[in-house]
């Protein structure tokens, strides 16, 4: 008849389940994915993360003499695809979620890279770290060619071939 009062013993037995956050620790499990952290010493500015990022929270722009890898945590969906794809393993997923901020501008993190200038046309095309890395990997490749932007390189290669003939 008054079966519904039986909920009282349950409540008594369970007691308080409330987590006393912010005075106590939050319930964050080991697998939780929070904001990412870019290790500036490892990052080469290749831009692989910016191409996979579903909401484009990561962007790579060359402005002035520098390339800026910009992470906008306000748009991040915390999927961790960037960390999976990063060839240098420079991106780490942290457990950080206390990101609240009064200014949107505080939600940006920029990683600044030096840029190489094409020795022929003067356009800026790649970060110097990435170029160094490629140079190491392709040691048999001529350094001359590598310091050219893709367009000039094509022209150079073709003219060389013509010359060889």
């Amino acid at each position: 008849m008054v079966k519904f009062v039986k909920v009282l013993p349950i409540a008594a037995k369970i007691g308080t389940v409330t987590i006393r956050y912010p005075y106590a620790k939050p319930i964050v499990t080991d697998s939780f994915r929070g904001a990412i952290e870019v290790d500036p010493s490892k990052c080469t500015g290749c831009g692989a993360c910016t191409r996979i990022c579903p909401p484009k929270a990561l962007s790579l722009n060359i402005e002035g003499g520098t390339a800026i890898l910009r992470y906008f945590v306000g748009r991040c969906i915390f999927c961790g695809m960037c960390a999976d794809i990063c060839p240098e393993k420079a991106i780490k997923i942290t457990k950080e979620f206390e990101l609240a901020s009064e200014q949107v501008s505080d939600l940006y993190i920029d990683v600044e890279h030096e840029v190489v200038t094409c020795r022929k046309c003067g356009s800026k095309f790649v970060t110097s770290k990435l170029l160094n890395k490629v140079e190491q990997k392709l040691s048999e490749f001529s350094k001359e060619l590598l310091s050219l932007c893709p367009r000039c390189r094509r022209v150079e290669m073709l003219s060389k071939q013509v010359y060889l003939r």
Binding site: P22, V28, E98, D106, E112
Partner: peptide, 28 residues
């Protein structure tokens, strides 16, 4: 936003805690 993050946001709103995130620019 996880429940804790929302609570934290309210705390920032009321000035109970200092916000942690700041704009950062690092050189690679």
């Amino acid at each position: 936003a996880r429940p804790e993050a929302i609570i934290y946001g309210v705390a920032v709103m009321l000035g109970l805690v200092e916000q942690k995130t700041r704009y950062k620019k690092v050189k690679a």
